[in-house]
Design a protein around this nucleic acid. Structure first.
Lengths: 157, 157
DNA sequence: AACGATTGAGTTGTGCACAAGGTAATCGTG
DNA sequence: CACGATTACCTTGTGCACAACTCAATCGTT
């Protein structure tokens, strides 16, 4: 055991180095993509992506919104939202309209087609959320833990 | 209340439509990005991105690995890994070498510099994982729930 | 009214993630 | 050995996510 400190494997002297599966951040990273991949085939049929779907949900929930407000609701910046909203508009799902009383503001609203899609999603996506195999209690737990993490990290990581 | 069914807001007749914050998938989506954003400034100093860091951790843990094995460990496909590994190689952190006994295989291994970075990360990133403000018990809970979700979704969503 | 600061939005560039398609090396079967 | 199938990897194209930068409209102060 004289010179194993540069070994390629994980046999460090004190094994301080956590395995990938033992990182919360990695299980989170994996789960997030697994969920997105689960939603994909369903949302494909409706013609939207997962982030686009979330935007439609937010718009349905809050009504016509400024880009800024959507950004606050989804924790996304303009660099992400602007092109995403343009694609939604190109597909006829939302309307983007610069406000007359303040030319800086752009108000985004669901079109009839966008509203219908959000409703249809509620049927077609029979809450994949529930299909993740978590009990109601576990779902509640998961949401609480994830919100706590998000909040703590937002308050300076 | 004759014609409120096309209203822009969320006042449906039976309010079956969940709010964004009540979706497990959305709290997951938000938390994941919050974590990545928390890691970013720390990893920036080391000169790697978050997914690159995960690859280095996997390589440190498993030793030299085929691209295929890394893909299995991280649940990533070649389309994601190949360019990522090329960037790591360009930065001198890994070596990519086609195997002589089977020219299809590409073996990826940490360079000395890559090994050092993974170790340094263990110090500099004082496990942000722990800095997420979860107790040890909560971390364990979170990992269990996230793994369960991932497994259930992998087994056909 | 003038003008510097702020605000809301857009643009550019980089990297991740995935689908779809392609290629060369190897394997399996006759 | 021939040859179709499989395997491991790569490439292209689309969309998301974020940093850094730009810009016009508005606000605050004088």
């Amino acid at each position: 055991m004289a010179t194993d400190d540069t070994a390629a494997g994980s046999q460090g002297a004190e094994e301080e180095f956590r395995q990938l599966d033992e990182f919360v951040c990695f299980t989170l990273y994996s789960a997030q993509r697994a969920v997105m991949n689960g939603y994909r085939p369903l949302l494909d049929k409706l013609g939207v992506t997962y982030p686009q779907y979330l935007v439609l949900v937010a718009l349905y929930e809050n009504g016509p919104s400024l880009v800024k407000s959507l950004g606050a609701a989804l924790n996304l910046d303009y660099g992400t939202l602007t092109p995403l909203l343009k694609r939604l508009e190109a597909n006829g799902l939302v309307k983007r309209q610069r406000r007359a009383d303040d030319e800086r503001l752009v108000e985004v609203s669901l079109t009839a087609e966008g509203t219908e899609l959000r409703r249809k999603a509620n049927v077609v996506v029979p809450s994949l959320d529930d299909a993740m195999g978590l009990t109601e209690a576990e779902q509640k737990q998961a949401k609480a833990l994830l919100r706590k993490m998000t909040a703590n990290l937002a308050a300076r990581g």
